[in-house]
Design a protein around this nucleic acid. Structure first.
Lengths: 209, 209
DNA sequence: TTGATTTAATCAAACGTTTGTTTAAGTTTT
DNA sequence: AAAACTTAAACAAACGTTTGATTAAATCAA
């Protein structure tokens, strides 16, 4: 499915509003106003508010999957380099589409069925499988220690990033970083997160109890 | 402020519904029906839906703060033991009040002002300060290495736990654990999370790049 | 090229329903 | 008797969605 300019306009306006106020907390009138289109256009293009949400996941779904395949198949990289590249690509992806990821976090919490939940489950599994391959490859080469709980390690990467994403305004205030511009602040926390996660993963992949 | 039985009944019904469907996604009629009280009782006791939410944070707010003081002041424990106890108490607290913590996660995402946001900010800072003390105490004693980014380490503990909390149904499905009862499953993931986080923290507190 | 016809896009207005809240009349408790 | 509680009914406002008219562009027939 492809969407024209106006449809994308609506989807991206809805994305921002859903991220900040939730699905139920956003009215179609809010979306229409924010997107600069007439109220009826949302039903006209998408059928319903619910289907607009599904279109949003369809629209973003393509860019969601990590480009892990290319990392995995690149034989010039060491296991450590692969993990580091994975972390940087993941952070970039999350922060580039912040609003959509907040919407995803919200959707994950409500464990209802439906196409969106399925898409999320599928995405999680794909990323998990590829991540597992990279770690296990490193274990076979003797770069990483064995006995790692890979799903939990993944939870840490995802969870720490989500935590920073959803509470960045608290972090900014607690560390008196209001003087920085939005861009500067984002650049800073991305850099810190990247360095921190790399150290963390290396630590846990090499730590012997 | 103290609340009578019926008020607590309403608060706890609202808690569960807010956690699963969000604040805006839950109607006062849903809450009334779920709590088994008349619709008007919510306005009668709390004034408004918004104030019910504030009462919820007031009601739970007391139990929120980690009992870190007692850990910190206990001189019989090593730094490692203190960190381990902290992790177990944190996990217990989160899982004991799952619904409320989901509500908190939701509220954290919307960066609006108001008494709730303030209470969250205050709670975060209190916990951060006490956690920092425990880590720094360990650093002075030479048990932990220096140069740790404590706020980010805290983000990992909170983020990993939140991630498991909010996506436990995905984890359950992906690992074919539907045969377990709800209680058994919860016990299992709490145990795994505890062991994992303890290893993780020890790894990062002792890892030398 | 002209004029007719179809198609897609846009709009203000209205639809019926659900929303949070209030009312006013009751009942129970103190 | 007073205070606290409980209720069904009603309220205006906001909600998602539909309608019917209007516009503009595209397609076709002459």
């Amino acid at each position: 499915m492809e969407y024209n300019d106006k449809q994308i306009q609506i989807i991206e306006a809805a994305e921002k509003l859903f991220a900040d106020h939730g699905f139920a907390g956003t009215s179609v009138r809010d979306i229409a106003e924010s997107a600069g289109v007439n109220l009826a256009m949302i039903s006209y293009y998408f059928g319903s508010k619910e289907k607009l949400m599904e279109a949003m996941f369809q629209h973003r779904g393509q860019h969601l999957k990590l480009q892990l395949q290319s990392i995995l198949l690149n034989s010039d990289m060491t296991s450590n380099q692969k993990v580091e590249k994975l972390i940087d690509e993941y952070i970039d992806r999350i922060f580039q589409k912040q609003s959509f990821h907040k919407v995803m976090i919200r959707e994950q919490m409500m464990n209802n069925a439906g196409p969106i939940a399925e898409q999320i489950a599928q995405l999680k599994q794909t990323n998990q499988t590829l991540f597992k391959q990279i770690i296990q490859e490193g274990q076979k080469k003797g770069d990483f220690k064995k006995g790692i709980d890979i799903p939990f390690l993944m939870m840490t990467l995802v969870g720490t990033t989500s935590q920073l994403l959803t509470t960045q305004h608290y972090y900014r205030e607690a560390n008196n970083l209001q003087s920085l511009s939005g861009e500067e602040f984002e650049k800073l926390i991305k850099k810190k997160l990247s360095a921190y996660l790399k150290t963390l993963v290396k630590a846990i992949l090499s730590y012997e109890a």
